[in-house]
Amino acid sequence: MKGVHLFALLVLASTLASASDPSHLQDFCIAINDTTNGVFVNGKFCKDPKLANPEDFFSSGLNIPGNTSNQLGSKVTLINADKIPGLNTLGISLVRVDYAPHGLNPPHTHPRATEILTVVEGTLYVGFVTSNPDNRFITKVLYPGDVFVFPIGLIHFQFNIGNTNAVAFSSLSSQNPGIITIGKAVFGSKPAINPDVLVKAFQLDKNIVNQLQSLFWPLNN
């Protein structure tokens, strides 16, 4: 009987041990491109921690507005391990989003990260849609100092409903959150998705599908 209890405890311990990410075995793992003296960890080579310096954990320039002169009227400036090597393996990244008047950060998802957004300037209409079968639309108008969370993997957007520029900063719970812009992914894929698939999926006339697939779908990052 003791053997059965011991086995049960081992199974439980194994289950709990695999329920979350493993703890770090070192303080940091600064990303480098030189593979001569590096160790490959989670997609990056890491330099000897004894050679770490302040510049490995530093970036500047987020005070400079992004160029919003595009079709969307918005610009996303990403700070990740490519910009701050010391972010490697720490599971976080940061973006600045600039919006022209009535600029849009279009519907998109981050497949690997939850996003928490803070409005610094302007007025944003934001929202996300929950997963099937409910597809609830959760939305709010945000003002400077307001914070809003977009859960991992859910389609979301931000729209500047004001007549002046807007600025927001977001933290994302991955060093590589990924982004899938819905319109571009569906109608701007290369090669193109068979129009018959989109006709049936979206209940659209085929001429409209063909027109959508012929459009230029801009990105803002």
Rank of each mutant, 00 (worst) to 15 (best):
F40L: 15
S74L: 04
Q26N: 14
T15Q: 06
T77G: 00
T15R: 13
A31M: 08
K200F: 00
F128R: 01
I152T: 14
V149D: 07
E121G: 01
Q213V: 00
G61R: 02
L90W: 04
L204N: 03
H102E: 14
T36F: 01
S170K: 04
I138P: 06
L198G: 11
D34I: 06
R136T: 11
Q211M: 08
N70Y: 02
G153Y: 02
D146Q: 04
G66T: 03
V39N: 14
N53V: 12
I138H: 04
T164M: 07
T123V: 13
L9M: 12
V97E: 02
K47D: 05
L172E: 00
V186Q: 02
P195K: 11
P144H: 10
T139Q: 14
D134T: 13
T77P: 01
G122A: 01
L25H: 13
G127F: 00
L154N: 02
V129R: 11
N194W: 10
V147Q: 12
V126D: 09
L62P: 05
S214K: 12
I152C: 12
I84E: 08
N160F: 13
L72Y: 06
T68I: 14
G178F: 07
S23A: 14
S170V: 04
A8Q: 08
A166Y: 00
S171M: 09
A201V: 10
I32Y: 09
V95M: 03
A17M: 11
N163K: 14
